[in-house]
Amino acid sequence: MIEVDRLGRTFKVRGTVTHAVQDLSFGVEAGEFVGYLGPNGAGKSTTIKMLTGILAPTSGRLRVAGLDPSRRRTALARKIGVVFGQRTTLWWDLPLKDSFELIRLLYKVDRGAFRRRLDELCALLDIGDFLATPVRQLSLGQRMRGDITAALLHDPPILVLDEPTIGLDVVSKAGVRDFLRRLNAENGTTILLTTHDLGDVERLCRRVMLIDHGRLAFDGTVADLRAIVPGEASIEEAVTHLYLSSRRSPRTPPPRPAQDPPSVTA
């Protein structure tokens, strides 16, 4: 479903070159549920943006559902659902149901199929009560469920989620997790999820990939991940170990974040 081969992306900021992603290779088969981890600034979001066609890679080869994302963006859009936890893909001022109607038009989903799909998702994600509410008035948990619904209205075989549980309370989080597990198990949807919440990984993902400094630092099952640290290690301990060890002995000089130097006069 996803093939990534020696993928790289650099950013040039005022003459300084930053390697956000470098020499990244992995594959994801249909029906997998993969957790994609990494510290802040490791290259997770850059990878997601290349997989979804938002950013063009600077090097390497990339195929999602058999398509080159940045060159076949519109064809890919029909086969992939994308959820950004940090920002909504819905229209801020429109009621949820109007946002869904616009998405129906954009994806050219026929009315009957749309109706059935929306009823199904309404029941599973429990969003029926606030369909008429403008998106800006929704709580974060409600908005996230709305966003997930929006990403699935065209019934894509692949779902990519960038931090979907960020900021959610325990109940909302459990609801989202339960839904994603069922979607993967019953529908066979391939799911790739980035998160900082290791509970998401433990409860959902059979496979974990960890990226650091733009490179793949780990790829295996959750059990493999735990086995990295000797003894009865928790997943937190294993991930902490990986983050810290790569920080102590970076294989490449760590990329400088693109920001202004701190002001000393303030």
């Binding site: 979804t52 066609g53 859009a77």
Partner: peptide, 17 residues
């Protein structure tokens, strides 16, 4: 605002969007 990202994941030309 980052909303251009959203337009790029939709199956319609971002110009039209």
């Amino acid at each position: 605002a980052g909303t251009f990202d959203t337009m790029l994941i939709r199956p319609v030309s971002p110009f039209v969007q």
